[in-house]
Amino acid sequence: MPQIPINGQAFTYDRDPDECPMCHHGIQASNIGSNLVSRSDLDGGNTVQILYRCPRNECQKAFIASYTQNRDYRSHYPQGDYYLRNCAPYRPVAPDTADELKDLSPNYHKVLAQSSAAEGLQLDQIAGCGYRKALEFLIKDYAIHKHPDDSGAIKKKLLGACINEYCSDANVKACASRAAWIGNDETHYVRKWEEKDLSDLKVLLRLTAAWILNEMLTEKYLREME
């Protein structure tokens, strides 16, 4: 493991960051400074901060990587290894959303991007609620697209009822229903699907969006090439 001297003492840490949190390119970060936050009231004990600089000409941004001790071994090894916890500042990466889905549901893309940003900032309790909201916008805008005469009713319906009544495609209905189940767990006190988490919600949301996109593209080419 690499070491860094701070105030005449060597601290061992697990690794240097291999991705810039600003430009998100793989890098060999340049170490340009360090600092020790030594406070017994901090969760996890001491924190080693290392200041890095992105070597890419297109970026050149500086960022701070924070390393904390493994609290399980802190009492036995007070100067033990430090492990990378996060890098800041962090610039969120907007998710890649097809133009057809952006046109179908602009709020879906907006909420999805904000949820992804929250997750990137390790706000996982907030991100789950956001992904659930993104699903609702996507499904209701999709339902309105398919059934414009029922727009008023669709907007007022609960998400589960909207999926059951207005999603005729079997794949859309199956994936959206399961995404809604996990999404509801992200907003409720008690979880029903304890073995599923945020990563499963994201996969099901991505699958739902993909099936909707496939249906829209199929309709488009069948309409244009009768």
Rank of each mutant, 00 (worst) to 15 (best):
V190R: 07
Y166G: 09
C129N: 10
S151F: 07
A174R: 13
A176I: 10
V172A: 02
I139M: 07
C175R: 00
S151A: 15
L205Q: 05
E186A: 09
D169Q: 13
G128F: 05
L158P: 00
K133L: 14
E165L: 14
W193Q: 10
S151M: 12
A153W: 06
S177I: 05
A118L: 15
Q125V: 07
E165Y: 06
K155S: 10
S168I: 13
A153Q: 15
R178I: 09
D149C: 05
L159N: 07
P148I: 04
L198K: 01
L123N: 02
E194G: 14
V190I: 12
T187C: 15
W193L: 11
G152S: 13
I139L: 06
H147D: 07
K156M: 10
Q125Y: 01
L121E: 05
S116L: 06
A118T: 00
D150P: 00
D124V: 08
P148H: 09
L204G: 00
H188V: 06
R178T: 06
K192T: 13
Y189K: 05
L121H: 08
A134F: 06
V172C: 02
Q114E: 15
G183W: 10
C129F: 11
K192C: 06
D149I: 05
L138G: 03
A179T: 04
S116K: 10
R178E: 15
A170F: 00
K156F: 01
I139V: 15
L158H: 09
R132H: 14
G130S: 03
D150L: 12
A127G: 04
L121F: 01
K202D: 03
A117F: 06
K156W: 01
A143G: 07
I182F: 08
V190G: 01
W181S: 06
K173Q: 13
S116N: 15
A153H: 11
S116T: 15
Q114Y: 05
P148K: 12
K133I: 13
Q122N: 12
A176H: 07
Y189V: 04
G160Y: 13
L207K: 01
K196W: 13
G128K: 04
W193Y: 11
L158V: 04
D149N: 14
K155Q: 13
Q125R: 14
G120R: 03
H145P: 01
S115M: 09
S168A: 15
A127C: 07
S115K: 06
L138H: 08
F137S: 07
N164Y: 04
K157Q: 14
A127M: 08
L121Y: 00
I126T: 01
E186V: 02
D197P: 01
E194L: 10
Y142Q: 06
